[in-house]
Design a protein around this nucleic acid. Structure first.
Length: 418
RNA sequence: CGGGCCGGAGUAUGCUGGUAGUACACCUGCUUUGGGAGCAGGCAGACCGAGUUCGAUUCUCGGCGGCCCGACCA
């Protein structure tokens, strides 16, 4: 893509109304636009990153048998009343789910989705009736709306956000557990591919409204809202909420061996048991002809939060540092004076070979400004073509993560040196 | 939802009870080009409402909005 046609502009200064690193950098670099507190638009560059994150999650979910679908945002209150999660006006919410609601013209109330256990369980009542139909795993990337009392930390705690939510439906506890562990491994692969592997821990946590315990995926970061305790040699992490003597003795570990860290919850998986299958009547018939409620589990990753976490975890003083797996482009080709003609040729060649390239073809922009933009945008490789390099029939390559400049022949540029 | 701070060109800010200044961006022209160029000219701004006052961007109150702390949070 030609940068001269990119409608977003970078900013030199931090927005005055944002304090968090992720929001400051993403706004300055033109990846997101803030609509209001906790509500962010994805601009073209931001959407490219977003879609790459989704692509990675999708591959890993498909690999463990997930079937992708897309459920609705408008929700029928009747379903939620069955599970006792519909909260009337003025009522204190026993489940802690802050609802957004709206109304039809005729006055009937509707819910605006904040999660989809009820919806999917209800759908499956029409498709599951025998043990032969199980297990099954369905997931989606869908907008969730949560009426957070306080949106904060930039895109990390939003009121509207896209979540990958997968739900498992199993015959037995053993079958559920087997998938649960498989999904936990898939989650670690996802975070590894997102460039967060070395600082993301599967973390023992409280089960909230659904079960006694759950597993969170926590990425170490000072920007995090959570506190976890980690035991590096055992690769064990425990959320502060459940860092109790009882839990420690169950795990046969000593409190003083743990280190305390701030962290960001990038994913969460938890058992649902038969809470929703019983409430909504999702039963299956066993080999023995008996009707039993399906055993469920729920598995979430916030896509925007993952994006923000990457920015928080990997930025430097000059800007964003995207891992190549999610970078908006693989290469930032920068033409400086005297290099325009060769840069143009190189741009065409890189595109032909399928390399995703952002081409800074802007004229009358000072070299320093181009370099500053390049650093801010965080594309993994910068390729400069200028009078100096053209004289040697070369281009200059610099990785975003390194200060080393490398010269590469313009004629025989290796296909993927990036 | 409680508390603190804040609200002015596209962005960032200084001063101010007498209708607004600067920098960057943007437009025009000339020069300039390897780490956010220079000169000249130009465009562009006070969240909403009420009150005090001869006069309010400035002071007071209310609303709305933002950030932060706390509470809350699958």
């Amino acid at each position: 893509m030609r940068q001269s046609t990119l409608f977003t502009k970078t900013r030199r200064e931090d927005p005055a109304y944002e304090e968090s690193v992720n929001a400051r950098l993403l706004i300055r670099a033109g990846f997101v636009h803030k609509e209001m507190a906790g509500v962010y638009t994805l601009l073209p560059l931001g959407l490219r990153v977003f879609n790459k994150i989704i692509g990675i999650i999708r591959e890993e979910m498909n690999a463990i048998g997930g079937q992708e679908m897309l459920m609705t945002t408008l929700q029928d209150p009747e379903l939620w009343k069955k599970s006792n999660r519909w909260v009337e006006e003025g009522e204190k919410n026993p489940n802690g789910l802050p609802w957004f609601k709206t109304k039809l013209v005729n006055g009937n109330e509707l819910g605006i989705a904040n999660t989809h256990e009820e919806t999917l369980t209800n759908i499956l009542c029409q498709h599951v009736s025998s043990y032969r139909d199980l297990p099954l795993y369905a997931y989606q990337f869908q907008n969730k709306f949560r009426n957070e009392l306080r949106a904060k930390s930039g895109i990390m705690r939003a009121r509207e956000f896209v979540m990958k939510d997968l739900y498992s439906f199993s015959k037995t506890e053993e079958q559920f557990r087997e998938f649960y562990e498989e999904c936990a491994k898939a989650y670690l692969r996802v975070f590894d591919r997102l460039g967060l592997g070395n600082r993301t821990y599967r973390t023992f946590a409280s089960g909230g409204a659904f079960s006694k315990f759950s597993d969170e995926f926590q990425t170490l970061s000072e920007a995090g809202e959570d506190t976890i305790y980690i035991l590096k040699e055992k690769n064990l992490a425990i959320n502060k909420e459940v860092f109790t003597d009882e839990v420690l003795s169950d795990m046969k570990v000593r409190r003083e061996d743990f280190e305390e860290h701030k962290s960001i919850e990038v994913g969460n998986i938890f058992p649902l048991g038969t809470k929703y299958s019983q409430a909504l009547g999702l039963l299956y018939r066993t080999e023995d002809g008996e009707d039993k409620p399906v055993i469920m589990g729920s598995y979430g990753i916030g896509v925007g939060r993952a994006m923000g976490t990457i920015v928080e975890a990997l930025h430097d003083e000059k800007g964003i540092v995207w891992p190549s797996s999610v970078a908006p482009f693989a290469v930032h080709l920068v033409a400086l004076q005297g290099g325009e003609e060769e840069a143009e040729k190189l741009y065409k060649r890189l595109k032909e070979q399928g390399t995703e390239v952002l081409y800074d073809d802007r004229i009358d922009v000072a070299p320093g400004a181009k370099f500053a933009d390049s650093d801010l945008l965080g594309i993994p490789a910068r390729v400069v073509v200028s009078t100096k390099t053209v004289a040697d029939k070369q281009a200059e390559v610099k990785k975003r993560t390194s200060e080393t400049l490398e010269r590469v022949s313009l004629e025989n540029m290796p296909k993927f040196f990036f």
